[in-house]
């Protein structure tokens, strides 16, 4: 197959970017999308040009490093599939493919297709955990959790933190990401003691990082390579309402403002 690639090139965070067109010849259907880019990069380097920078690592769809807009769709045309697991059999000979980085205020471009997603880490640092130190845990089977419940928690915990939900959202909201972590922990008994405090602080942090608000377009769940459901956002919003009440109660117990 021969493809025409229209790729966003941007030398650095403050430099201006532009689209550059490349030919990709000798593409085979068995190649992954990133292997196709490897081939283009090998060509570019042999011609003395700088290769296209893109983030990637495991190439098994689990580390969450890779991700780009492919013809305007986060991670490309195959549903439930990260860019590294997308194969060239999804394209046809002669296709033109537009490749861009994630676009969001909270994800500044580092170079070409690489963006800075550290805001997602800061959301987790603000409360996305259970506060247990190493060493003091009880026997694991003392906590009984029904299979259905743990399966639901696992569905939410499957998030790979790639940021496709943010890139796909017209508001560049990180609600799917944030709600997936909140749901994972809110659905388990271990997550209960900090449940509402966690909800408040993670949502506050998300807003401080410059992500937009959720208006339920549902684009995030369509783009998610792990097919995480927007039901999690509903759960998050419900908990948010409750947590504003519990916060008031906590303050009252502590003697008011």
């Amino acid at each position: 197959m021969r493809l025409k690639l229209v790729v966003w090139r941007q030398p650095g965070p403050t430099a201006a970017g532009r689209f550059v067109t490349y030919e990709a010849n000798d593409v085979t259907p068995d190649m992954s999308f990133l292997e196709m880019l490897d081939m283009v990069n090998e060509d570019l380097q042999n011609r003395g040009e700088a290769p296209i920078a893109f983030d990637h690592d495991c190439r098994e769809g689990i580390c969450g490093s890779c991700g780009m807009m492919i013809n305007g769709v986060a991670h490309g045309p195959m549903k439930g599939t990260a860019t590294c697991q997308l194969h060239m059999r999804s394209f046809r000979d002669g296709d033109t493919v537009h490749i861009e980085p994630w676009r969001a205020r909270a994800f500044p471009v580092v170079k070409d297709l690489v963006v800075d997603r550290s805001a997602l880490d800061r959301i987790i640092a603000s409360g996305g955990f259970v506060s247990v130190n190493t060493g003091g845990a009880q026997d694991a089977n003392n906590i009984l959790i029904s299979k259905d419940q743990v399966d639901q928690a696992m569905d939410a915990a499957a998030c790979i933190g790639c940021g496709a939900c943010v890139a796909a959202c017209p508001n560049a909201s990180a609600s799917l990401f944030t709600s997936a972590k909140l749901s994972h922990l809110a659905l388990l008994p271990q997550g209960q003691p900090e449940r509402f405090r966690r909800t408040l602080s993670m949502i506050d942090r998300m807003e401080e990082e410059g992500f937009g608000a959720c208006t339920f377009h549902g684009e995030c769940q369509e783009a998610c390579p792990k097919e995480i459901s927007i039901d999690n956002i509903v759960r998050m919003n419900r908990d948010y309402v409750k947590s504003t009440v519990t916060k008031r109660e906590e303050k009252a117990l502590a003697g008011g403002d």
Binding site: F129, V130, V132, T134, G135, G136, A137, Q138, D139, A140, N141, I143, L144, I145, S146, K147, V150, A153, M154, A157, H184, L185, L188, Q190, G191
Partner: peptide
């Protein structure tokens, strides 16, 4: 054995049987 206890306490969603055990 301590690892499993620690990870469950953190909320790692290990697979479970219908009775709720690991």
């Amino acid at each position: 054995v301590n690892i499993i206890d620690q990870c469950v306490a953190q909320g790692v969603p290990f697979a479970r049987e219908y009775g709720g055990l690991l």
